[in-house]
Simulated scan of single mutants.
Amino acid sequence: METKIKKKLEESVSSKKRFRNIKFGGLPLILFAVLLFSSQSTFAHCDSYDGPVIKDAIKALKTNDVNPVLKWISKVQENEITILFHKTYNLRNGDKEVYEIVEKHFFETMVRLHRETEGEPYTGLKPAGSTKQIIQMTDEAIKVGNVDGFLLKLNKHIEKIVREKYDKVLQLSKVKDHSIKEGREYVEAYVNYTHTIEAMHDILEHGIEHGKGHAEHKE
């Protein structure tokens, strides 16, 4: 049994080495990293003031054109946002404090409805700079139109994480039968490691299921 486990670990590490050679497969790697190194709330980066949703909302209000924000919501939500957009825009030249309140309400509504399309709850607006670095890097790669630099950093990070998990399992495998406590520590590390590899494999093979909400978002 122990020989089989060691063989499985070695096969997993061998599989991991292939990730460094992936080029066009960068997109699945990006999705994997977001899922592996962050919680589900990572996908809420659209709720920050420097996120893409509010950036488009600011652009829409500056140009009096609601269209830039409609892509972030579903068709059934368009009427609510369009009405609120025009109400907000019409107050731009009025009382500054009143406008700031209405503008924030517009941003909150935009983010809340967008989160609904993702099947996720709205948890409030986040300050600029609160988005996790890995998501900022993915956005920057899109902005500059080049993913190579990001993939280089990402692949190194993935290798570091996998090696740390592997090394921990390998060390604990040497003492797993010394006591129940050490055995449980080994099992916990082993499960964490193998589930990480399995998640990586499944996402690279099949992609991430976005759910019904995301399907509506694409309409």
Rank of each mutant, 00 (worst) to 15 (best):
K143F: 13
I197C: 01
A199F: 06
L70F: 01
D167K: 12
L172I: 06
A128L: 05
S179Y: 02
V13M: 08
K176M: 15
F24I: 15
K168Q: 09
A215K: 08
V175E: 12
K7Q: 13
V66C: 02
K7M: 15
V102D: 02
I197A: 01
I81M: 07
S12Q: 07
G26W: 01
S12L: 05
C46G: 12
H206Y: 13
E10G: 01
D202F: 07
T3D: 04
E216L: 15
I22D: 01
K174P: 08
K126P: 11
S38Q: 15
A60Y: 00
F85L: 09
E116A: 06
S12P: 03
F150Q: 13
L204D: 03
V76S: 13
D95E: 02
A128P: 01
H178C: 13
H217T: 12
A215E: 11
A33M: 10
F19K: 05
I158A: 00
H86Q: 11
G94K: 13
M137L: 08
E205Q: 13
K104H: 06
Q77N: 14
V66P: 02
D139Q: 12
V66I: 09
R20D: 14
E209N: 08
D139R: 12
S12H: 09
Q136M: 12
V34E: 13
K165S: 03
P28D: 12
A128H: 02
G129R: 00
E80M: 14
L151F: 04
T88R: 00
N67P: 08
D167C: 07
G183E: 00
L84G: 03
M200N: 05
K181E: 08
K6E: 10
N93K: 12
W72Q: 01
I197Y: 01
T138C: 06
R115W: 15
N79G: 08
H45K: 05
Y122H: 12
G94W: 10
Y89K: 05
T196L: 00
G119Q: 03
K71C: 09
S74I: 04
R184T: 05
E205L: 07
T138L: 07
N64T: 06
L152H: 14
K71S: 11
E188N: 07
E188R: 11
H201P: 03
S38L: 15
K165I: 02
V13E: 04
I5L: 07
E11K: 12
P127Y: 04
V175H: 11
L172T: 07
I101N: 06
V147G: 08
V147I: 14
I208P: 04
K104C: 04
T194V: 13
E185G: 06
T123W: 02
N79K: 06
L172K: 09
G119K: 03
H157V: 14
A141N: 04
D65K: 05
Q171K: 08
L172D: 10
Q40P: 11
T88P: 04
E11L: 10
E205Y: 05
H178P: 11
K6A: 12
I101A: 09
Q77E: 14
Q77V: 09
V144K: 15
N192F: 04
G183W: 01
P52H: 06
K6T: 10
E2G: 11
K168T: 07
L36D: 12
V175Y: 11
T131E: 10
K71I: 07
A199M: 10
C46K: 07
V13T: 08
K4N: 08
V34Y: 11
S173Y: 11
N79F: 11
N21A: 03
V191K: 03
T138Y: 02
F24Q: 15
D95C: 02
Y122A: 10
V162Q: 02
Q77K: 15
G211C: 00
